[in-house]
Design a protein around this nucleic acid. Structure first.
Length: 750
DNA sequence: GGGCTATTGCTTTTT
DNA sequence: GCAATAGCCC
């Protein structure tokens, strides 16, 4: 009866796939490694493969699992296969398939969360565990350092958390962490790791890495549970395989088990998450662990013009730790890669905005067709202001991350406390927000009480609220009153929220805790914060239809596991401002990559390590290959950094793009605010180095005067783009500054 | 205990 | 340059 699925698309599949793609789709039994370059139709292959499994091979959707990098990718895949859930009328690749909801598409983290909810009790995990994100983790590490009396000035909590996190992703538990090397740092980590894990367990919390680690341990210790999932997920597919870590790899191979129906899809050249413990060697391990695995390379690019592809190849081919591979395309040559220079980030943004407006008019692009990409989030600010100045609608992903905003986190903390009042991290967050007279002194006393009796903060407060207890303590009547009031508040919240849907619970919190009034007293800022909470309610609303028993927990889990990119929404026409990392897996007709400067891209922190430098190059490569038709690359001469402006030189990566593919344009002629129609100078073959040979307008040794810096002497002068960078040593403060000739307004002295 | 000011310390990328 | 904290004063 499983064979009665819709077969109508099958003929289309054969027409629209190339030879390698078709092979990747039809090779369904046994291990497969698909090396898929950018734009090679990877998503199509995965979706067609699933369709093939269901339609041709009679596999039930229930027995298939696809693991993606983000929730967004997961929901897109589901939609491509089955059409939109809400609309019902738009059919996907498969048309109408019974039991399509049984098909699993999710991220590793979501999948593990599900498994642990169902079977985690075998490892003593509460069903309603909370998932702690990086901010919560940092709070806990800081607390653990306090307990272990580690000086936070000497050891950074972030560095320690990074090591704990990387240990967890290598499946090293706090019990197994051995400081055997004799390195004093190791000893500290060992102590903090254990303490951190204790704190987590006390709060019934699980961090991101625990989701993967604990699921692995669950499978190790309970073969019957593992078998249950092996029998369920008989066909396993893993996307973005180059960015999986060891814990994820182990999970995948365990679930695949002896059936070995595991298909991984990845591209070593797009591995950009090593800092999150992703291990590119997983691709090698896969071939070692499955010596009979079928390797299929998808090398034809259907996305980009040949110019963009060749430019990107020029960049990526400079990496030495790389298996040589060159993509081909039959796409037209298209436009050159435009390289632009601006004086400062504001002007750089202006340059981008002007071009966006020009392309809209001349080519009929929509705002949705544009993305502006950058290395670090702080760059988004100038771009955002540029959009506002030019009335260009934009969506900013993760600048100040939504779920990191104070008011959103406060509300989530309340929600978590309702589910689990013994969640210390969340409780301490809201204990005095809005202010209710519980000061640090009172909190310290309660913390002491909780330590002494080995109970949670909330339990300690209940104890302290007990009238009999207060007689034996030196606690003031006032402090006793506020504690009692708070315990009552939490009790009432738990009681009154029972059975309500998530949105109503949020409303309940806003009223009962006085949070709404607290925000209203904050004027404009309060209004903005209230808007963010409304936004949270919109998310909460989506869980209205889920089984009442689970919807609250699912909602909390959902917000813990969302990524920012998940919220990227195409329904309103606006340009996307995103980091290069977030751009992975996306494509746009026109892409702007800004900030191509030494120290930014490549980032300064990669300078001392060859492998990190190569990863920076891959980051740039990923950005370039997002572009279908137009690719713009810009840089700024000056950039504010820690308060003072610094001069940046052009990124080394610019030199790797063959000069014949580039065309320069400059900001020189477009002061901010002016309306300029055409700033593109079609200069044909020229690159940065070409200009260096031109005659310099400034002699070395020339004495000059600057409005602000006073008198100085020219140290060097190099042509860059359509301007010259002059390095001047100034007398007054001895500073050596890089100036742009066209802007510096230097006065010649004799 | 709370609110204000001064100081510090920090900047990569994020499931 | 900004945001988070420490320390001071009410």
């Amino acid at each position: 009866m499983d064979l009665l699925y819709n077969l109508t698309m099958e003929s289309n599949i054969k027409v629209s796939l190339n030879k390698e793609q078709k092979e990747a789709v039809e090779y369904v039994s046994g291990p497969v490694l698909i090396l898929a370059g950018p734009g090679s139709g990877k998503t199509r292959v995965i979706t067609h493969r699933i369709a093939h499994l269901i339609n041709q091979c009679g596999v039930r959707p229930y027995n298939i699992a696809a693991v993606t990098f983000t929730n967004k990718a997961a929901s897109e895949m589901r939609q491509r296969l089955f059409g939109s859930d809400e609309l019902g009328d738009s059919l996907g690749l498969l048309g109408h398939v019974p039991n399509q909801r049984d098909f699993t598409v999710s991220t590793f983290h979501s999948l593990c969360s599900l498994i642990l909810r169902l079977d985690g009790s075998l490892m003593g995990l509460a069903k309603d565990f909370v998932i702690y994100d990086r901010d919560d983790q940092l709070t806990l590490v800081t607390k653990a350092m306090e307990i272990s009396e580690i000086d936070p000035k000497r050891f950074s909590n972030r560095a320690i958390l990074d090591i704990i996190s990387s240990s967890k992703s290598k499946l090293i538990t706090s019990d197994n962490y051995n400081a055997q090397t004799g390195n004093p740092m190791d000893r500290i980590i060992e102590v903090v790791y254990k303490s951190y894990q204790n704190l987590l367990e006390q709060s019934k919390g699980v961090d991101f890495d625990d989701l993967l680690l604990k699921t692995n341990l669950l499978f190790n210790n309970n073969p019957s549970i593992l078998k249950k999932y092996q029998d369920r997920y008989q066909y396993l597919m893993i996307d973005e395989f180059q960015d999986t870590n060891m814990a994820q790899y182990n999970l995948a191979t365990k679930i695949a088990g002896k059936r070995e129906n595991i298909c991984v899809v990845g591209d070593p050249d797009q591995s950009i998450y090593s800092w999150r413990n992703a291990d590119i060697r997983n691709i090698l391990s896969f071939q070692e662990d499955y010596p009979k695995c079928k390797v299929i390379s998808l090398n034809e690019n259907y996305r980009s013009t040949s110019t963009i592809l060749d430019g990107a190849y020029g960049v990526i081919s400079q990496n030495t730790q790389r298996i040589e591979r060159k993509l081909t395309t039959s796409n037209p040559k298209g436009d050159p890669i435009f390289v632009g220079e601006a004086y400062n980030p504001e002007e750089e943004a202006q340059l981008v905005m002007k071009e966006i407006n020009r392309l809209r008019v001349e080519r009929g692009y929509l705002y949705n067709d544009f993305a502006v990409m950058y290395r670090v989030n702080s760059q988004s600010r100038a771009l955002e202001e540029g959009c506002l100045r030019n009335s260009i609608p934009y969506k900013l992903i993760g600048g100040l991350r939504f779920y990191q905003r104070k008011e959103v986190r406060d509300l989530i903390a309340y929600l978590r406390v309702i589910v689990n009042p013994h969640d210390n991290v969340s409780l301490l967050r809201i204990i005095n927000t809005p202010p209710r007279g519980i000061g640090q002194k009172t909190i310290d006393e309660i913390a002491e009480l909780s330590d002494k009796n080995k109970i949670s903060i909330y339990a300690a407060m209940e104890l302290a609220a007990n009238a009999k207890f207060v007689e034996d303590s030196k606690r003031s009547g006032r402090s006793h009153r506020v504690i009692s009031k708070f315990v009552d508040l939490v009790t009432n919240l738990i009681h009154d929220s029972d059975g309500l849907d998530p949105t109503s619970i949020i409303n309940l919190i806003l009223e009962m805790t006085g949070y709404r009034v607290y925000l209203e007293d904050q004027g404009d800022q309060g209004t903005e914060r209230m808007d963010n909470i409304e936004e949270l309610k919109v998310t909460a609303n989506k869980f209205q239809n889920v089984d009442p028993e689970d919807r609250f927990i699912e909602f909390l889990q959902g917000i813990a596991l969302v990524s920012d990119i998940d919220s990227l929404d195409d329904s309103q026409d606006s340009i996307a401002l995103i980091t290069l990392h977030q751009a992975k897996g996306l494509e746009f007709p026109a892409v702007f990559i800004v900030g191509l400067e030494e120290g930014l891209l490549p980032h300064i922190r990669s300078f001392d390590y060859a492998d990190q430098m190569e990863e920076e190059r891959r980051v740039f490569y990923v950005g370039m290959t997002r572009a279908k038709e137009c690719l713009y690359i810009t840089r700024s001469f000056r950039r504010g950094y820690m308060g003072n402006g610094v001069s940046n030189v052009a990124s080394r990566f610019l030199m790797d793009i063959p000069s014949a593919l580039m065309s320069h344009f400059s900001s020189r002629s477009i002061p901010i605010g002016s309306v300029v129609t055409d700033v593109i100078k079609q200069s044909g073959a020229s690159d940065l180095s070409d200009h260096a040979t031109e005659t310099s307008p400034m002699e070395v040794g020339q004495k000059v005067r600057h409005d602000r810096f006073g008198d100085g002497i020219v140290v060097s002068c190099t042509a860059i783009g359509y301007d010259y960078q002059v390095t001047v040593a100034f007398k007054a403060d001895g500073g050596v500054r890089n100036l742009l000739l066209g802007y510096a307004n230097l006065q010649l002295l004799d």
